[in-house]
Design a binder for these strands. Sequence first.
DNA 1: ATTTGTGCAAATCGTTTGCATCTGA
DNA 2: TCAGATGCAAACGATTTGCACAAAT
Lengths: 141, 141
Amino acid sequence: MALQETKEPVRGMLRNAGLRPTRQRLALAGILFAKGDRHVTAELLHEEALANGVPVSLATVYNTLHQFTGAGLLREVAVEGSKTYFDTNTSNHYHFFSERDGVLMDIPVGKLAVDGLPSPPAGMEVSRIDVLVRLVDKKSG
Amino acid sequence: MALQETKEPVRGMLRNAGLRPTRQRLALAGILFAKGDRHVTAELLHEEALANGVPVSLATVYNTLHQFTGAGLLREVAVEGSKTYFDTNTSNHYHFFSERDGVLMDIPVGKLAVDGLPSPPAGMEVSRIDVLVRLVDKKSG
DNA sequence: ATTTGTGCAAATCGTTTGCATCTGA
DNA sequence: TCAGATGCAAACGATTTGCACAAAT
């Protein structure tokens, strides 16, 4: 029963999500969920996979990210035009975004609250609230 | 002194922003700032300009939107991957976003408040807080 | 006259897709 | 076996850029 302990939880995670635990998916999931919460772009994850000796194609990285998102394992974060960020923390929380280096960081849960939300237009309901706190270098003065 | 009253304020607005009041810029600014707050994409504005008999090129629309943004006349709103939205309301406020039809709406100022913001990482300061309330169709049930 | 803006088409960037090949159950 | 996954390269949509022409000061 004591197989490769690092990979087993990941395998189950994929199974539960109805995704075949393929080489690539196991590797990508391993990278994503190994060390706490992460915020990656497809390109970043692709590079990291290659660096770890897992020769996935960029297309597969995209496919995988979207499948994981669809399965509720990841969450997309809208930051700005082009690049899409994926967040391994799918619980309700908000973000800091460093405009200097394009890095996303979680804002500790429970600290930040949004109050006074007016009711949405008729026939619609809130699906999610995104809060992005944009950061810039403090102007030393 | 009583010239074309509709265009004069726009002309001054551009002058103050250090932008030459060209035909296209006047036309685009006219469309953008004429009737209250608006949320446009480059493509939308382009179509609207053409419909109003102003044959601007899409490239110029992009240039203009960015120049206006740089001059503080517009604000960019990050919604999701691809399209970039520009908002004529540059004051501090937040948005509803209808995922059904891709429409942005202002949330009345003063109603919504963000509390409990933790202090940003050392050397950084908050430049702006974006709040996007995503809406979906209420599931009739 | 000189500087700045404009239009077009080609180039770029992130992302998606079609299709032949491979792989896990 | 065989549905589902992968890789590649071509296709894509939004945005940008290079350069010749036009317009504003």
